[in-house]
Simulated scan of single mutants.
Amino acid sequence: MLKKITIVMLLMCVSLLVDAAQQLPKSGSEKSSIALTKSAKANLERAQQVKQYPSFKQKKAQIAIIIDDIGNKRADAAAFALPEKVTFSILPHTSFSTQFSTYSYHQGREVMLHMPMESLHGEALGDGALLASMYPNEVERALLLALESVPHAIGVNNHMGSKLTQITLQMNAVMDVLNNNKLYFIDSRTTKFTKAHQIAQQHGVATAQRHVFLDHYANEAFLEKQFEQLVRKARRNGAVIGIAHPYEISIAFLKKKLANLPDDVELITVSEFLSLGGEDISDSFEQPRLANRSIQTTTDIAPE
């Protein structure tokens, strides 16, 4: 009898050991399957998240280009060969102000008024300029007349202005007009003492400052140097504004460069720049000068 009980107990132990052995691989398999399922689910969620939210993708560095002084001469029309995202800033009361503004509009290009403002150096300003001797109502009237000569303008930047942009009274009058007409203002920064950008902000005017001046020496070596600086700042800061002129060499250079931008850089309009709402970048300055063909170092203040 004792022998039978012993045999039965042995059989039961063997049975338990077999069951345990069968359970071990099954438990490990289940854990592995669960781990794989969690990993696959996480990968799927990440893929869906990137697809749903494009901001997860790395943004390109962005550059906005303004061509100043458009409208003085018929030859300025060569600039229309530049990409349509290049913004034209057109001088008022010239032979081609209205014509070039209208053509830019039909081309789908953004138009700005390049408003002459008094400088410290006595340069000729042309018709309808804003002067430090003007009363605020005279400033407002002159600015509105200038805007009439450049239809379709959606913004303004200063032509010269190293004197006027330092004077609060007249710049307040300028910004009142811009605010009332929902126009933006780009400070060309022709002096390190400019108050224009700050006063525009105080009046609720959409505003920014020029970061790199591309062609105050009209030769390809200088253009190349400045364009590289523009791209470098865009990569560092996200978006920047550069200003150039309708010089033949500048147009040829920009046509080539803008058609072959690096993969991580894109051209945007000034309105697109303003819509980003980023911080403006102020750099060191250089004494104003007229464009010439000698190449020198620069600390990048706009010439007048």
Rank of each mutant, 00 (worst) to 15 (best):
residue 11 L to Q: 04
residue 12 M to D: 09
residue 13 C to W: 14
residue 16 L to Y: 01
residue 16 L to C: 08
residue 19 D to G: 12
residue 20 A to E: 13
residue 20 A to M: 15
residue 20 A to Q: 15
residue 20 A to H: 10
residue 21 A to V: 00
residue 25 P to M: 14
residue 27 S to C: 11
residue 29 S to V: 08
residue 32 S to H: 12
residue 32 S to L: 12
residue 33 S to V: 01
residue 37 T to A: 15
residue 38 K to F: 10
residue 38 K to C: 09
residue 42 A to H: 03
residue 43 N to A: 15
residue 43 N to G: 11
residue 43 N to H: 13
residue 44 L to S: 15
residue 45 E to A: 15
residue 46 R to H: 13
residue 46 R to Y: 10
residue 47 A to G: 12
residue 47 A to C: 13
residue 49 Q to D: 05
residue 49 Q to Y: 06
residue 49 Q to N: 12
residue 49 Q to W: 10
residue 49 Q to R: 14
residue 49 Q to M: 13
residue 51 K to Q: 14
residue 52 Q to F: 07
residue 52 Q to R: 12
residue 52 Q to W: 05
residue 53 Y to D: 12
residue 54 P to N: 12
residue 54 P to H: 09
residue 56 F to A: 07
residue 58 Q to W: 02
residue 58 Q to E: 08
residue 58 Q to N: 03
residue 60 K to L: 10
residue 60 K to M: 10
residue 64 A to W: 01
residue 64 A to Y: 04
residue 65 I to R: 04
residue 66 I to Y: 05
residue 66 I to Q: 03
residue 71 G to Q: 00
residue 73 K to N: 06
residue 74 R to N: 11
residue 74 R to T: 05
residue 75 A to C: 02
residue 76 D to P: 05
residue 78 A to L: 12
residue 78 A to Y: 03
residue 79 A to M: 07
residue 80 F to C: 01
residue 80 F to R: 02
residue 81 A to V: 03
residue 81 A to K: 02
residue 82 L to N: 00
residue 83 P to E: 00
residue 84 E to H: 14
residue 86 V to W: 03
residue 87 T to M: 08
residue 87 T to G: 05
residue 88 F to V: 04
residue 89 S to F: 11
residue 90 I to Y: 01
residue 91 L to Q: 03
residue 91 L to C: 00
residue 92 P to F: 09
residue 93 H to L: 00
residue 94 T to R: 09
residue 95 S to I: 08
residue 96 F to R: 02
residue 98 T to F: 13
residue 98 T to N: 07
residue 99 Q to D: 11
residue 99 Q to M: 11
residue 100 F to T: 04
residue 101 S to T: 00
residue 101 S to C: 00
residue 103 Y to K: 04
residue 104 S to A: 15
residue 105 Y to I: 06
residue 108 G to I: 02
residue 109 R to H: 14
residue 109 R to V: 02
residue 110 E to Y: 04
residue 110 E to C: 06
residue 112 M to S: 04
residue 112 M to L: 05
residue 113 L to G: 00
residue 116 P to T: 11
residue 116 P to A: 13
residue 117 M to L: 10
residue 119 S to A: 04
residue 119 S to F: 07
residue 121 H to W: 09
residue 124 A to F: 07
residue 125 L to A: 03
residue 125 L to N: 02
residue 127 D to Q: 15
residue 128 G to T: 06
residue 129 A to W: 00
residue 131 L to Y: 15
residue 132 A to W: 09
residue 135 Y to N: 10
residue 137 N to G: 06
residue 138 E to A: 07
residue 140 E to P: 01
residue 141 R to N: 10
residue 142 A to H: 05
residue 142 A to F: 03
residue 142 A to D: 05
residue 143 L to N: 04
residue 144 L to N: 10
residue 145 L to Y: 13
residue 147 L to Q: 01
residue 148 E to T: 08
residue 149 S to K: 07
residue 149 S to V: 02
residue 150 V to C: 08
residue 151 P to Q: 11
residue 151 P to A: 09
residue 151 P to F: 06
residue 151 P to N: 07
